[in-house]
Write a protein that binds this DNA or RNA. Structure first.
Length: 395
DNA sequence: AAATCGGGGTC
DNA sequence: GACCCAGATTT
């Protein structure tokens, strides 16, 4: 595309810059008209219900569309509006959130609903700056609600936008450094007449065309203007710094009483998996020998190593838990000491009433397996290590 | 600026 | 296995 320079009184770069942006924005919206995704929380143009936009945006943080969809339907059915959510018990909110991760999101969602109900007439503010003040709403979500629900010209910057913009303009520095520039360019590119659709469009482009690996540049509306493509830098841009993980190993204690009920407890309200239900466990950084440091929770109990392992990968932790069981706990002193640590015995049939993390669900699955059900997985790895012969690995 | 906070899809 | 997803909050 040739950019016409039809105004001799303005510097070429300024004029062509603005015209180029208009061209790109127009091309993006045309592409979106034909290729935009239909999603449960989406309409064309501004969305009439900011609550729907809000719930979807919070759920979608660091989460894939496919994962979110069933959670979204369940949540909207159970909590159809701000008032319903505000009046709910936080534990009921967590119950619907279990398995979705980043549980702070659920807590802030609940806080925010209560705040809006009490202080803002149960309605969302429409401006970026007001939205930004709300619990759980940061720069991305403030811009997304403002643009998607109220058609304000506030550009979102998420992983998709970072990728699209940094490739389009050939920005090769680390994204942590170039973020302000990316934000400016995304804002400049934003449509002046179709703000909501622009937001959906640039994210759809990043999700379906300008993908991290093997982007389909041949169908991209920016194909002819993309710096990264022209300079063969698609695989180098964006440059994202990776964080490193630590390895932790620990013990999990599966405790049953005479009735076959299992001991569970509630995690603290801060930190990893906060507020969720768990079986007692403790982990330390390091390797197998570190296990000697862990003796919780009943020093004198007759612990049996089940030989079962559960592995779980968090954002910054690789965790391996070895599962230990007691025989039926009937010693009164042990029982008393255990109850002092905080928790309760619950029937397995009632697990569904408590919010468990995926990690704990793996534990349940491991304990309930007979030890042979994973032979197929073990066989596939039999040459790898002694460990995989010795333990059942649930992953 | 760097660390913390889940879980799952994809390559 | 590595990457990274519609990021926010704390340190």
């Amino acid at each position: 595309m040739t950019i016409p320079s039809n105004n001799a009184f303005l510097p070429d770069d300024v004029l062509s810059g603005k015209e180029k942006r208009l061209f790109l924005s127009s091309a993006l919206l045309s592409w979106y008209n034909q290729n935009g995704r239909d999603l449960p929380w989406r309409v064309r143009g501004a969305h009439p219900n900011p609550y729907v936009v809000w719930i979807s945006e919070i759920m979608l943080q660091q989460t894939t569309v496919k994962t979110v969809i069933p959670y979204f339907y369940r949540f909207l059915e159970r909590f159809p509006d701000i008032s319903a959510l505000a009046n709910a018990d936080i534990d009921d909110v967590l119950l619907l959130w279990q398995g979705l991760g980043y549980y702070t999101r659920a807590r802030k969602l609940h806080e925010c609903a209560q705040f809006l109900n009490q202080n803002n007439g149960g309605k969302f503010p429409e401006t970026y700056s007001e939205l930004l003040k709300l619990p759980g709403i940061g720069p991305y979500t403030a811009a997304s609600i403002s643009s998607l629900a109220f058609d304000k010209r506030e550009a979102v910057v998420d992983g998709n936008v970072i990728r699209v913009i940094s490739r389009l303009y050939g920005i090769a520095e680390s994204t942590a450094v170039s973020l302000p520039e990316i934000k400016t360019k995304a804002q400049d590119l934003m449509s002046e007449t179709r703000a909501a659709d622009y937001t959906s469009a640039i994210m759809d482009l990043g999700a379906t065309v300008c993908t991290p690996k093997n982007p389909d540049c041949s169908v991209c509306p920016f194909e002819g203007e993309c710096e990264a493509l022209a300079r063969n830098l698609i695989d180098e841009i964006p440059k994202i710094e990776k964080l490193q993980k630590i390895n932790k190993i620990g013990k999990l204690f599966w405790i049953e009483n005479e009735s076959g009920d299992v001991f569970i407890r509630k995690r603290e309200e801060a930190g990893l998996l906060h507020g969720l239900t768990e079986f007692p466990w403790e982990a330390v950084e390091g390797n197998d020998e570190m296990l000697n440091k862990i003796s919780f929770p009943i020093p004198n109990a007759d612990w049996v190593d089940t030989g079962k392992n559960v592995r779980h990968v968090f954002t910054h932790i690789n965790l391996t838990l070895k599962i230990f069981k007691t025989k039926v706990l009937e010693n009164e002193a042990d029982l008393k000491n255990l109850m002092k640590t905080g928790g309760q015995f619950v029937s397995k049939d009632n697990f569904k009433d408590y919010p468990f993390s995926t990690l704990m669900k793996k534990v349940v699955k491991a304990v309930e397996s007979d030890g042979n059900s994973d032979s197929k997985k073990r066989n596939s790895k039999k040459a790898k290590s002694v460990e995989s012969k010795t333990f059942c690995d649930f992953e």
